[in-house]
Computed example of a mutant assay.
Amino acid sequence: MITAMTHVLVLAGGLSYERDVSLRSGRRVLDALRATGLSAELRDADVSLLPTLKEDPPDAVVIALHGATGEDGSLRGVLDLCGVPYVGCDARASRLAWDKPTAKSMLRDAGIPTPDWVALPHDRFSELGAVAVLDRIVDRLGLPLMVKPAQGGSGLGAAVIREASALPAAMVGCFAYDSTALVEKFVPGKDVAVSVVDLGEGPRALPAVEIVPRDGVYDYAARYTAGLTTWHAPARLSEEVAEAVASAALAAHAALGVRDLSRVDLIVDGEGRPHVLGVNVSPGMTETSLLPLAVQAEGMDFGKLLAGLVGRAVARGPG
């Protein structure tokens, strides 16, 4: 049970490429929690964090960190060591979801459709000969392709490749953000995201949000620059397709062992079939982020949802 005395620490910032977005998420989470009457403070994940956790441990932590700091499981492992409860999945599930090739393998093993792919470390790319490797990729997966970092978010380093000649430059751009590139078969269709939340009665899929970037690619600029993307919440899907999308999202959430909340990214192809692209365990909370849009479409109060998740974390305890 939580009360006005419950002390919540919101972690945001970090040192990833997504620091600015994380700070925006953290401030919005902070304001929403305070609006419910909870005592909350915002703190960066820096050298002062561990002393703070020891001297004045919070009742629960909300992780609003994006990128490796908030999503690769390492911070969650440290919170476990410190005996501090936190909202969201444990370190293991976070690690699995963070690594896209691993997550896609688990999705495929669970029978959940995901576009075909190949993961290519930079070292192998160089050792085996860039031209020969890229030729084989195009032969196997065809065109168009999606290139993105194997570990990363916010569309950083991602590119849609429609001509083979554009693939080498896309690989170089991708390797600027991660040492491994995920090259995925591009599935044309509607880009949608389904947020999954669990307030104690089992995972629940919120209305899908449809994403329509002005330039056709949902990259970093399209996500966080006003006017570059239009969102439809709920997504413009038939009832049957909306149910299939929600079922696929819930299945992906379960397959990776995620708890409390996640955002599942999908493509709905021309025949209405959903294809899961990935699962985000620390979704954005900014004014243009998809989970808050889904919460609004469901008619839920954002602050009350967060407070409910905090309550679950407090009741669950560390680990």
Score class of each variant (00 low, 15 high):
Ser126Lys: 14
Leu53Met: 07
Ala315Ile: 10
Asp31Met: 04
Val160Pro: 00
Ala64Met: 12
His232Asp: 11
Leu75Trp: 04
Ser238Thr: 15
Thr3Cys: 02
Ala193Gly: 15
Pro57Met: 04
Leu49Ala: 04
Leu30Ala: 12
His232Ala: 11
Gly70Ala: 09
Gly142Val: 07
Ala221Val: 12
Arg28Trp: 06
Thr52Val: 04
Leu145Arg: 08
Leu145Asp: 05
Lys104Ser: 08
Leu42Asn: 05
Glu18Val: 10
Trp98Leu: 15
Ser16Asp: 10
Val62Arg: 02
Leu266Cys: 04
Arg259Ser: 15
Leu107Asn: 06
Ser16Glu: 09
Ser39Ala: 14
Pro318Val: 07
Gly77Pro: 11
Leu277Asp: 03
Ala60Tyr: 06
Ala169Val: 13
Asp109Met: 12
Val87Asn: 06
Gly129Met: 05
Asp191Lys: 02
Leu256Val: 12
Glu41Met: 11
Leu277Gln: 13
Glu271Asp: 15
Leu120Val: 15
Ala169Phe: 07
Val268Pro: 07
Asn280Thr: 15
Ser105Asp: 05
Arg223Phe: 03
Val138Met: 00
Val187His: 00
Leu156Met: 11
Asp198Arg: 10
Arg95His: 09
Val87Ser: 05
Glu287Asn: 10
Ser262His: 03
Thr6Phe: 00
Asp139Thr: 09
Ala164Glu: 15
Gly173Gln: 10
Pro213Phe: 11
Asp20Gly: 04
Ala45Glu: 08
Leu65Asp: 08
Leu237Glu: 10
Lys104Asp: 14
Gly278Phe: 03
Glu298Gly: 03
Lys148Arg: 14
Pro57Ala: 06
Ala4Gly: 06
Leu15Phe: 12
Pro121Glu: 10
Ala150Ser: 09
Ala68Cys: 08
Leu53Tyr: 01
Tyr220His: 13
Leu237Met: 02
Ala208Tyr: 07
Gly70His: 03
Ser16Trp: 08
Glu71Asp: 08
Ala40Leu: 10
His122Ile: 12
Thr230Ser: 13
Lys100Glu: 01
His275Ala: 03
Glu298Pro: 00
Pro85Val: 00
Arg95Asp: 11
Glu41Pro: 00
Pro318Ile: 10
Phe175Trp: 15
Glu210Phe: 07
Thr180Asp: 05
Asp269His: 00
Val276Ile: 06
Val245Pro: 09
Asp44Leu: 00
Leu11Pro: 08
Asp260Phe: 08
Ala169Pro: 06
Leu134Phe: 05
Asp135Trp: 08
Ala248Met: 06
Val192Trp: 12
Arg316Gln: 13
Ala233Cys: 13
Asp56Arg: 15
Pro101Asn: 03
Thr225Met: 12
Val183His: 12
Leu15Tyr: 09
Phe186Trp: 13
Leu266Asn: 01
Pro283Lys: 13
Asp80Gly: 07
Pro213Tyr: 05
Arg273Thr: 09
Cys82Glu: 14
Leu65Ala: 01
Met171Cys: 15
Leu65Cys: 02
Arg204Thr: 13
Asp178Phe: 04
